[in-house]
Design a protein around this nucleic acid. Structure first.
Lengths: 240, 240
DNA sequence: CGGGTACTTGAATAATATCAACAGCTGTGG
DNA sequence: CCACAGCTGTTGATATTATTCAAGTACCCG
């Protein structure tokens, strides 16, 4: 892990390509300037390094500038449960607001850069800003919506379809290609996230490839027939 | 559905028994007074009546004063997916903040009284209050934590145990008996929520009864051996 | 090039869903 | 108060799906 000064590297909320997902939008510019000053550092983590560990003091929120992370917890027997994956523009640690320790652990899936948002300072700023409270509420409220994720009553195939569609939709919001998912996610993790055995996932992905619904090259998935995916998913009354 | 004036019925945030879960805590009293004035009405719904429907304009947040609700969405084929159950002290519609329509539908499981919090007025009040923004963030952040709920990679038995423990813990926060769960929840709904067939749920509940872990009388579940439940659940590094 | 991790594939097994029939309770109207 | 309809929950037999076990292959990184 390396920490650098954002300013020295010309990094600010104003020149951030994912500001629209993060703090850098819906906030008037003088206010954003104040927030920007708060976020002094950007940290760099290598693949496999932890951003933070569950049950440790939550000093920072981490906004992903580039790369990706997984958030997980562990049960008594040491079994891992993946809560979510995070990409550029996502903010890590939100559920620690009003708590003083992180509820999950977060680890880099690939080299990742995260802006370090001091939680205490941000909270104290709430009372003296016009737009920040609403912006934060929006971000969390969106998170609540998006997290809903996988329906428990659904077949393995449906879950895979749901997962791919959800990633695809999140990539869209980031301006990435809708149908070219450069996942840095191991099948191990993906299967854990959607609650099926990884052998089952492997079989389903290959079946989908055979049916020309997707194409797989290592960890990249190309969606070739999104309509069919939606069909398999059985789609729901889309939460927005 | 009947709407009544809170004031006329002597109802306010200050005399509410679940204020500690809702808006009526961590807010200085003059501010709370302003909020209190905002919440003019309390609505009464009979069992089966909808508080709101998915995709309709979100004018209000609804804080449950008494009774319980389920929140659900529906897929294309009309299959229902239960998102959560809500009890006194819970606030419905939070994920609609910063959206202008509800993402789910909410329906009363028994006679329910809900305080109607005008969303727009609440939002406008954010900028002119000291404590409200943080309180709202806390509530949502807690929700994010608590919602995580059922682990996808888990046996039917574990899910039942997890569900009962989670309800029990929520009841505790409300000052209800920890081990006497007066659920107004049909097995149909419970099984849907945890993602197993309702026949399977019925079998498991009876097996647990046989093992003296719980006792069932109609829709009330008495937890007789919470340690064994925890054992079955396999517990995790509890998110707090 | 070697060693380990990640992924694939097949066969056996176990878990849960589904189907079906029935029991019990609840509320309604005669 | 009883009879009946409808809904909710029970229980058994069977079908299906996904997990587990096992062995092997591909791939990545040093």
């Amino acid at each position: 892990m390396t920490i650098q000064h954002r300013k020295e590297h010309g990094i600010s909320c104003k020149n951030c390509s994912v500001a629209h997902l993060c703090l850098g939008s819906q906030i008037k510019s003088d206010e954003l300037e104040r927030i920007d000053k708060l976020i002094v550092n950007i940290a760099y983590f290598d693949k496999g390094q932890h951003i933070y560990h569950s049950q440790t003091k939550s000093d920072y929120l981490y906004a992903i500038r580039s790369g990706s992370c997984k958030e997980y917890s562990v049960d008594i027997e040491g079994k891992e449960y993946i809560n979510n994956f995070y990409f550029a523009g996502d903010i890590l640690g939100l559920e620690a607001i009003g708590n003083n320790s992180y509820c999950y652990s977060a680890v880099a899936l690939e080299p990742v850069r995260v802006c370090m948002i001091p939680l205490q300072s941000l909270v104290s700023m709430l009372a003296t800003t016009q737009d920040l409270p609403m912006r934060l509420l929006n971000i969390i409220s969106n998170k609540v919506r998006d997290d809903s994720g996988i329906r428990l009553t659904s077949s393995a195939k449906q879950r895979v379809a749901d997962f791919l569609l959800s990633i695809s939709s999140r990539f869209t919001k980031r301006g990435y290609a809708v149908d070219e998912l450069k996942l840095s996610i191991a099948q191990q993790d993906m299967s854990n996230k959607i609650g099926i055995a990884f052998e089952t996932l492997s079989r389903i992905l290959h079946a989908m490839q055979k049916d020309k619904i997707i194409a797989i090259q290592s960890r990249n998935v190309q969606i070739r027939d999104i309509e069919k995916l939606r069909e398999i998913s059985g789609g729901w009354e889309q939460p927005l």
